[in-house]
Write a protein that binds this DNA or RNA. Structure first.
Lengths: 331, 331
DNA sequence: TTGAAAGCGATACCAC
DNA sequence: GTGGTATCGCTTTCAA
């Protein structure tokens, strides 16, 4: 069974390929009657348009390149779904690539995207690299960043409102009477770590809490490293009654450090996380945490991209997605 | 800055586009000297090949269509990474689409893939639909299924060795002296539920255990529904000393049902899961479960697909990925 | 409203 | 080893 092309249909319909194209794309300049006839024939022949050919001529690929650092990280999957749903609704298809957080691979991926003439990009670059930033900023293709922000460049971005999220969490702890709150931070290299930690100290100050009694510690971001960090923090600062954690994963790590000593959550130490991953409801006790609307973040990013692709100016440049404190039992 | 094309490079190099193409693709039939000169010029001009044009002429898109039911499900993300890594290594790019488990969307996605001339497909179709199966089986494009198997069709597939996995789990429980083991199954509609349940009864019989004392119950697959199911099972069958669960998620649901009554895991009731998701190490007590090599599954699927795309016959048709019992503290 | 012709950017194929 | 030309399947453009 040979491939059905416009020409084939044209021959059968007794018109030219041109006319068939007009009919199929509902582009007007054609009589209703002819169009109906052509559509019928096309359907009968089980025609599937060749988007490669179409792209070549029209310069529109209807492809969106999405680069994520590591598909497995729970967070990305939800965001991805938001992106994909929105893309699908608007007739775009997703090209997904996993950078593995490797510089060389990120570069190669961007080239491949370009090579396939993607019309837009959604990127979650891993670390900040001036070279990569310049490359991205110089791209002729519209682009939206997720969870990242390049100061000094006009690249639209979407991220959770980290500051507000932390503020909500701290307010909750303070309301419950905590005054000695430890902060278990994530990876030192991450910009988000800095943002959240700054928001933490800021919120504490606003609440009139003495930061002297509120130690902070960093870890590598993994659950195990968090256990170790929390253990150390609690040993060195026994006065602490609550832990604010950079992420849910880190909170889970802290759980272990707390519970191994027979201490109770939240009785002895209260814990608050950040992200609201699925497991937050599953652990024991269920984790009080700051919810990030991941799916909506993805959708929002794609919507911004569509706007940018339509040539509209993105105003404001950054979308800070609203967070929500989900109070469960750990604090 | 206009687009750099072969022709441009050719003009500058004083050769034809044809020759440039040969040089860039290292296709031979060209002198080392000319090739070097052309490559240099191409690089200077910052040439990026147009894969759309190349695809059109060569009939090779270097695109692989991947359809998943729901990108958010933790499992898929790992598999996806395996697929993507392998694809990347072999010069292929992933088109990702999320079917949302909707029939119509699955059909639309397959058409879009075809329209983009994907050279291969990796599908994780949601439910069994005879129509979809026939469509897939009739596709001119090589295809590999993940976690699904269509009896009576010659479609290669990859899935965990469910039977062996369950057998390992049951053997472990029996070794620890359990004789009254309950089975908390997943969604009734899922083929995997049947497979695992059959494997369960089979293993029990082999171990010489009386199935009469070993009740089974189904749930909707969610954590909450599992809590309810486990609660019911334990109430109606107080003799049970261990629960074999269809998945880790279901095991977590069972945890709640067990612990809410003040019962201890594994002291009062032992629990074994299936999947080995990240949280298995995080919950308390850490979950003993059957590990599925998800990343490898993805890689294997892609490798099979590459073979199929190369025209090789896939023998055997199905790859059953080796499972491994990970003994932690819940059983 | 329709047709004819050109061309998107690359590769295949055949000459030389 | 290199060049010329046709062509992939479609859309654009202009003419009728």
């Amino acid at each position: 069974m040979a491939k059905v092309t416009l020409k084939e249909i044209a021959r059968r319909a007794g018109v030219t390929a041109n006319t068939v194209s007009r009919a199929l794309n509902n582009r007007g300049g054609i009589s209703k009657e002819t169009q109906r006839r052509i559509l019928k024939i096309a359907h009968e022949m089980n025609y599937i348009p060749d988007r490669i050919a179409s792209s070549l001529r029209s310069m529109k690929s209807n492809l969106i390149g999405v680069m994520v650092p590591n598909v497995s990280t729970a967070n990305w999957a939800d965001i991805l779904r938001g992106v994909e749903d929105c893309a699908y609704e608007n007739g775009f298809q997703i090209l997904l690539s996993n950078s593995q957080e490797e510089r060389a691979r990120e570069k190669a991926i961007l080239e491949q995207f370009r090579s396939l003439r993607v019309q837009g990009l959604i990127l979650m670059p891993s670390f900040e690299s001036q070279e990569l930033i310049r490359t991205i900023a110089g791209l002729p293709t519209p682009c939206v960043l997720i969870n990242r922000r390049y100061m000094g460049y006009e690249i639209p971005f979407v991220m959770p409102d980290n500051v507000h999220g932390i503020r909500q969490a701290v307010a909750h702890l303070v309301n419950r009477g905590h005054e000695r709150i430890g902060f278990v931070n994530g990876h030192p290299g991450s910009m988000t770590s800095q943002i959240r930690y700054n928001a933490f100290t800021e919120s504490m100050r606003e609440s009139g809490i003495d930061l002297a009694g509120c130690p902070a510690i960093m870890c590598k971001g993994s659950c195990a490293s968090a256990t170790e960090a929390a253990r150390k923090l609690l040993e060195e600062h026994p006065q602490v009654t609550a832990l604010m954690c950079f992420s849910d994963l880190i909170a889970f790590g802290a759980y272990k450090a707390i519970q191994e000593g027979g201490r109770k959550i939240p009785g002895d130490i209260a814990v608050v996380g950040f992200d609201d991953v699925d497991l937050a409801t599953i652990v024991s006790p269920p984790l009080t945490t700051v919810h990030i609307p991941r799916y909506d973040m993805g959708k929002t990013a794609m919507r911004m991209l569509l706007k940018a692709m339509a040539g509209e100016k993105i105003e404001p440049l950054g979308q800070f997605m609203e967070t929500r404190l989900v109070v469960r039992e750990s604090a």
